[in-house]
Design a protein around this nucleic acid. Structure first.
Lengths: 235, 235
DNA sequence: GATGATTTGTACGTATGTATA
DNA sequence: ATATACATACGTACAAATCAT
């Protein structure tokens, strides 16, 4: 009955639906639930030791967030994307993050800027070590720092939401050293522009950077939206 | 039992939750449910002649959309915004629509451009007649046309969602002829830039335009988030 | 194409938590 | 501060729809 981590059911407060929502979202974002995976309500309910009700509410929320597709009377699946949709997502992310970065160049606090510098330095070390996994983490943190640097909760929320939506599709972004080096070089321009409050360069460099990331990821894209794909449930 | 429009329940198929969600969203966007209005589950259920279950699911969806605030164990209210939050929303909308407009300048079809021209001409007539209500409608349609002109579903969805979220707060945007005239003049620049594929002018003009709208609306902002405001339910 | 099995959709009841006197 | 009233949270039961055979 007690599935592994259900100890957490110590449950400080109610809000089961929100908790389930977060858990499923994590599984999706972390790649444990792959795109097109069927999300069966009873299985999920059993997995989390709750009834179907909070699971259903969580799935409804996730469908609005775009992480889950909700087909009527036919259950939910982890959102899948055609290469075309992925491209559109990247375009949107580029616009959002470039806007965030522009504001960040004007609004970042000293602490923000310090963290930005630190992360970039750590990124350089990761590149020198050829440690792509570590660079991937640092890359994410750097972008997060810049996004949050705009200090506009609405922009932050939108950009973060978009990042979550594509995360299941970018697990292989840095497969080769070449792309990692390019990425770092682009980061250098961005970081320097932000630190010198140069809004125009910041904006352009961030857009350029995300266009590069777009093509890099698109090239790496396998056959996701396999039409007659696996009906395999996650378990 | 049959409240006025419940005839509509002819919708044989399920999807009640989504339908309720849409209905409540409409009421909010149209201003029938004012910000800070309490959304009582049983009252809503009775109003729509359904049980509380689909209402709850709808409220969860609406909270993710940002139209409703969901406080745990304490029910839902129509999302209210402080002037500061409203300002942040406008900033985000400015970024989104400017991005949409830039893409629209490159991607609009001939039909799109024709419609843009038509709407702008109709807007001029409304200004000449001093018809603010009509201009308000045309203004909305023009912006919608531009947003959709980017032909990126993700950007369109985000921009549209933001517009819905602020709609309860902008019902008094055009109270004076002066602002209407300004708005039309700004539209002229934008429309011309789009029609001549001038991405830079389009982008800058749209940002400027929405900054103007921001200050105009902010100035008109009354005491929305009244702390000890009415607990009046919508009925 | 019809029928049974499985899964989703809705209703309702009870427990729990919050607000109020 | 305690008790009472009331609204929400979750679980369970049943109805309806889809899928497989």
């Amino acid at each position: 009955m007690n599935s592994s981590e259900t100890l957490k059911t110590t449950r400080s407060r109610g809000g089961l639906a929100d908790e389930i929502c977060r858990k499923i979202a994590d599984e999706i974002v972390l790649g444990n639930f792959a795109p097109s995976t069927r999300l069966d309500e009873v299985s999920l309910a059993e997995r989390f030791n709750v009834s179907r009700t909070p699971v259903r509410e969580a799935l409804k929320q996730l469908s609005i967030m775009g992480l889950v597709e909700y087909r009527l009377n036919r259950g939910s699946v982890v959102a899948a994307m055609t290469p075309e949709q992925l491209d559109q997502m990247f375009e949107a992310i580029g616009e959002m993050e470039a806007a965030c970065a522009r504001h960040a160049a004007l609004r970042m606090t000293e602490d923000d800027r310090t963290r930005l510098r630190e992360l970039h330095v750590l990124g350089r070390l990761a590149v020198q070590d050829g440690d792509m996994n570590r660079y991937d983490v640092l890359n994410l943190e750097l972008h997060t720092t810049i996004i949050q640097g705009c200090h506009n909760p609405v922009l932050i929320e939108m950009a973060t939401s978009l990042r979550h939506r594509i995360s299941p599709f970018r697990r292989t972004q840095f497969r080769n050293m070449e792309r990692m080096g390019e990425s770092f070089a682009e980061h250098s321009v961005i970081v320097e522009a932000i630190l010198s409050h140069d809004v125009i360069t910041t904006y352009r460099a961030m857009r350029t950077h995300l266009l590069s990331a777009r093509s890099a990821t698109s090239r790496a894209a396998p056959v996701w939206n396999n039409p007659a794909a696996d009906n395999s449930t996650y378990k």
